[in-house]
């Protein structure tokens, strides 16, 4: 592999073609794949999940560009992901549970988030706002029944309802971060609530 390799329009097209013959459908699949990779890297406690997801897809594009036969893209990406996680292993830490319960967010922090939430939701279409609030209504036991009823009312399968609610929540969280001056999750303070920096 040449160290000077860089992602070009042609190599990106080759990557899209490997995902689906139809370019529009391939673009949708690319976005979904990128989202799943970001989540996986975040669950693995990577420091910068977004950039690792970009790196993983770029490495896949490079292999395809170099003519490598990829039988299973998820399996291939998983191998790349494993290597990327090893490479940044020194920056990651496997979780060890705390010995006591950390304090919840401070009242002023919640007030800031509440104000930002109100601002964000005020710009939404009522149907989307109502879906989000209804989906996350109630405690654990009540939620199951709430969601089944909501899915029935909206004529959706539960999986489709969950898909919509997850995206709305992600959109809300992104909006709130912007409102309170945090553009990315990794840019905010990770100060331990027990007082440790």
């Amino acid at each position: 592999m040449s160290p000077k390799w860089a992602l070009t329009a042609e190599s990106f097209d080759r990557l899209l073609a490997a995902l689906h013959p139809d370019r529009a459908e391939a673009a949708v699949r690319y976005e979904a794949l990128h989202e799943r990779l970001v989540r996986v890297f975040r669950w693995e406690h990577a420091v910068d999940p977004e950039s690792l997801a970009d790196d993983a897809l770029t490495r896949l594009a490079r292999r395809l560009d170099e003519g490598e036969s990829v039988l299973s893209i998820p399996a291939f990406l998983n191998g790349i992901a494993r290597n990327l996680l090893k490479e940044e292993g020194a920056r990651r830490q496997r979780l060890q549970p705390l010995t006591d319960v950390p304090a919840p967010p401070s009242e002023s922090e919640v007030e800031h988030h509440h104000a930002a939430l109100e601002t964000c939701l005020a710009t939404w279409e009522p149907a989307k706002r109502d879906l989000l609030l209804a989906y996350y209504q109630g405690d654990q036991s009540a939620r199951i029944l709430n969601r089944q009823k909501l899915a029935t009312d909206l004529g959706l399968e539960l999986n489709a309802l969950r898909n919509r609610a997850l995206r709305l929540r992600e959109r809300l969280e992104t909006c709130i971060r912007k409102q309170i001056g945090r553009d990315t999750p990794s840019s905010n303070s990770t100060t331990d609530r027990k007082g440790k920096p």
Partner: peptide
Amino acid sequence: ALLHEHLAATGQLDRLATAVALASA
């Protein structure tokens, strides 16, 4: 404690305050 560690390790502690705000909304 486990969740707190996960959110702290990934710079997502702000999601706790958002969850409280969402519950009050």
